[in-house]
């Protein structure tokens, strides 16, 4: 303030600028409101279209919750929505989604955390300034491009390297998905690691620890809440990512946890089938039900992650003990 010329300083005190400040404040406030409202509206819309699965008797002639979960009368579990007797078992889709998410995280988390640890603990300033933006740039690659790469190139490499029967499987799709997940996990984890106070590192070095021991045994545990949050965000992305999986999974609704089998995921199913499903028909409502399910799971995952991170952070700062013992020492 003091560096401003007196005339400019005056401006802040004029009633007109008070009005301006109000307007700005209200704009910011209402944009926050818009975001929340959009979220609620989306959920209401998805939920409304999903609801007939539970309530509508017309839909129940073809499908209900029990038939989606329990084994079919014809035996086994099957996803055949376009059929003389449509079958809507969720199990194949669930297993497919689960296995591709796991494979993606198994690849992405070690790579992303390794890169984050390298960037924050080992890389010289110059390399760090290049590495971080470059990895973050990965997040900007459209997922359809990643999917296309997985479909055309990655699938062939993996098939040749491991002699896989199927080109399109959970490993191919999981690796493609990892490309989308890595930047998220990396960015958040790197921020968490960088935020660890230097005094922890100094303490460790002063005990004769080398950089690797310091990074692994002190910095990483100290950054655990943030690193965990990074992994949860990554899992959420892997769970909901559509285009990469649609293109590189083979979309076969098999009941299998074998990562070398082709599979069909929730998100890809919605993307592939919603365009075709008869508006208002059972298939249409089932797809919205899947959408609502995805929404709830990702939301729940983020919420649980948030809660756990908070708890972890408190524990790190020794707060849980104070809380449980009423602050006594």
């Amino acid at each position: 303030m003091s560096s401003l010329p007196p005339a400019a300083e005056d401006l802040f005190l004029r009633p007109r600028s008070v009005l301006l400040e109000r307007i700005v404040e209200w704009t910011i406030r209402s944009s926050a409101f818009v975001v929340i409202a959009a979220l609620v509206l989306i959920f209401v819309f998805v939920g409304k279209e999903a609801l007939p699965i539970l309530t509508s008797s017309a839909v129940h002639e073809e499908v209900d919750l029990v038939r989606m979960v329990a084994p079919l009368e014809s035996g086994g579990f099957s996803w055949q929505p376009v059929s003389t007797v449509p079958k809507y078992s969720l199990l194949p889709l669930f297993l497919g989604t689960l296995k591709v998410t796991l494979v993606a995280l198994l690849f992405a988390i070690p790579v992303a955390l390794g890169a984050a640890i390298f960037t924050s603990e080992f890389a010289p300033q110059g390399i760090r300034e290049v590495l971080k933006p470059v990895v973050e740039l990965l997040a900007g690659i459209p997922s359809v491009v990643v999917g296309f790469f997985a479909l055309m190139v990655l699938a062939t490499w993996l098939q040749d390297a491991f002699g896989l029967l199927l080109r399109l499987n959970a490993i191919t799709a999981g690796l493609g998905l990892a490309v989308a997940v890595i930047p998220i996990v990396y960015t958040v984890a790197e921020d968490a690691l960088t935020a660890v106070p230097q005094v922890f590192r100094d303490g460790s070095f002063a005990l004769g620890a080398n950089r690797w021991q310091t990074a692994w045994r002190v910095v990483l545990p100290a950054a655990m809440p943030g690193v965990f949050a990074a992994c949860v965000l990554g899992a959420g992305r892997a769970f909901g990512e559509t285009m990469i999986v649609l293109m590189s999974s083979g979309n076969a609704p098999t009941v299998s946890l074998d990562p070398t089998e082709s599979f069909r995921s929730f998100s890809a199913t919605i993307a592939a089938e919603l365009g075709e499903a008869v508006h208002g028909g059972p298939h249409y409502h089932v797809l919205f039900f899947l959408g609502a399910f995805l929404f709830v799971v990702t939301f729940g995952l983020n919420l649980a992650g948030h809660w756990y991170v908070g708890r972890l952070r408190d524990k790190m700062q020794g707060k849980s003990r104070l809380a449980s013992r009423g602050g006594g020492r």
Partner: peptide, 10 residues
């Protein structure tokens, strides 16, 4: 019905 392991592509 198609077999479950038939891979479908766009």
């Amino acid at each position: 019905d198609f077999a479950a392991n038939v891979q479908t592509l766009p």
